[in-house]
Design a protein around this nucleic acid. Sequence first.
DNA 1: AGTAAATTAGGACAATTGTCCTAATGAGTC
DNA 2: GACTCATTAGGACAATTGTCCTAATTTACT
Lengths: 191, 191
Amino acid sequence: MNKISTRAQIIQHADQLFYQQGFENTSFADIAGMVKISRGNFYHHFKSKDEILKAVIELRLANTQNMLDKWQTSTDNPTKRIECFIKILITNWSKIKYYGCPVGTLTSELAKLNHSLQANANELFSLFRNWLAAQFELMGQVKKADAFAMHILARSQGVATLGNSFRDENFVKQEVEQMCDWLNSLKKQQG
Amino acid sequence: MNKISTRAQIIQHADQLFYQQGFENTSFADIAGMVKISRGNFYHHFKSKDEILKAVIELRLANTQNMLDKWQTSTDNPTKRIECFIKILITNWSKIKYYGCPVGTLTSELAKLNHSLQANANELFSLFRNWLAAQFELMGQVKKADAFAMHILARSQGVATLGNSFRDENFVKQEVEQMCDWLNSLKKQQG
DNA sequence: AGTAAATTAGGACAATTGTCCTAATGAGTC
DNA sequence: GACTCATTAGGACAATTGTCCTAATTTACT
């Protein structure tokens, strides 16, 4: 039957709900309703709500790594790889429009809760940061690689937040284009 | 005695707590503890928690307008005015470091809650957006004024989110400098 | 001083929260 | 078929939530 384990189902639905409703605002009852199990059953799989969050972050880290790996094999051109990253804003626009960036909104929420898993969530940013920096290095921007990575990360983050707030797809498209222009202007400077 | 009214005190402390802990995560008990009044007393001043949020947003709108007005009178140079905006990231760094941008984090949270006051919170962004656009117009950038306003708004927002996540002041300073450089390069293009 | 209104404290209220316990059911092994 | 262990359902639990009610107190005005 190849049935998905209950544990995996809990993580999967929690991932979705934490993104759409926020972590604090998502209750056990919400997740139980989605997975269609009883509330008491949770504690056989997870000791606490925080453990679910931990598992969700680990899932997101794995999914993100998979995505980065795919981009890595899809082309040898580091500039094109970075463009893949920039264009997630458009690829995932239908979700970003309503729920913002899954990484940024989570880290922001955990910061306000002063939650013990802040560092884990920040790893999601670090994953992108390090991968982007590696691409910039391949472009020959060894010295500025990390600064450029943070720059692109920040701009994407801001576009997601503003795009979510104003629900304006054209704005997102324009900013994506500008970021790609900036990226390609670096190549020329270098070559 | 010139005592601050209870209502004003509630709004003031709620403003602070909503920023530091988030709206949903701040309870009546939290606010009551700060103002030092009984919980039941709230409903003489506000019909519901949402009404407090509404009042808090109105307070923030008023405070923001005051800040913009001050910048407006502090100099005739629109470029310098925009620099004032960009540099809030540094001015308010000690708070942003721990709680992020008060506007961005609120709109993001309300989006996830699908809250009825989303539009009110977004007005905070609009206030900055329109003021920035007016400054860009004064700089002679009539056609691109709004796009530039959104651009600066988005970049500031992203820097606040990443700055909050990584707690990195140097990154913030670098990005602020780059934004100012970009701003001043526009002036040269024009003149 | 006396009266009316505004303000306050304190607690009741049902609903929901995360957590935990126990008994029943399931599957797989000998 | 009997036994073991994993999984599940259902409910108990105290704590907290936003909301509302009532009685007491304070304030303001005649």
